[in-house]
């Protein structure tokens, strides 16, 4: 049985986003888009999560937090960078306290564009992440 293929659990962390992408991530879970009907759950516990959704860019301060959350997640895991800030730093890339996109710290598998990213795009990104998750799971099984 492969549960994660259809119903991944998601951990959301707000790097230094403006909230725009965060409320869109939450909007995905609520009735209009409602990914919870597929069993996708937003969890607060990194140990439960399969997919890490990060919004906003990386700065000196949240570097270690993001790294720690990533390391706490069990394998296999996939990282989705939501919004242009998480991809490159976006409009804030020139700010003195912003280091850049999430991939400066941890490997990113899927980039979701947009400022703010639209719920449809976020869902699309998560679906893409599912494919990667499945590949990794197969690979991990073969190795075991």
């Amino acid at each position: 049985m492969n549960f994660s293929k259809k119903s991944p659990w998601i951990l959301h962390y707000d790097g230094s986003s403006c909230n725009g992408c965060d409320i869109e991530v939450l909007a995905c879970l609520t009735p209009l888009y409602d990914v919870e009907r597929f069993g996708v759950i937003n969890t607060g516990n990194p140990k439960h999560a399969d997919i890490l959704l990060i919004t906003g860019s990386i700065n000196e301060q949240n570097k270690s937090v993001v790294k720690q959350l990533y390391e706490q997640m069990a394998n296999p895991k996939v990282v989705v960078a939501v919004g242009i800030c998480a991809a490159t730093g976006g409009i804030f890339s020139e700010c003195y306290n912003v280091l850049g996109g999430v991939d400066r710290i941890i490997p990113v598998d899927v980039y979701v564009p947009g400022c703010a990213a639209r719920p449809e795009a976020i869902i699309d990104g998560v679906v893409k992440a599912l494919g990667i998750l499945e590949e990794r799971q197969k690979f991990a099984r073969k190795k075991a």
């Binding site: 790097g15 403006c18 409009i91 306290n97």
Partner: peptide
């Protein structure tokens, strides 16, 4: 944790462009 220092961006974006930055203070 989310300090970006966007008030400092006025030196790099002109006053017309800064409207876009101001809109992204908070979503």
């Amino acid at each position: 944790y989310i300090h970006r220092g966007l008030e400092k961006l006025v030196e790099k974006k002109d006053f017309q462009q800064y409207t876009y930055v101001a809109e992204r203070i908070c979503g």
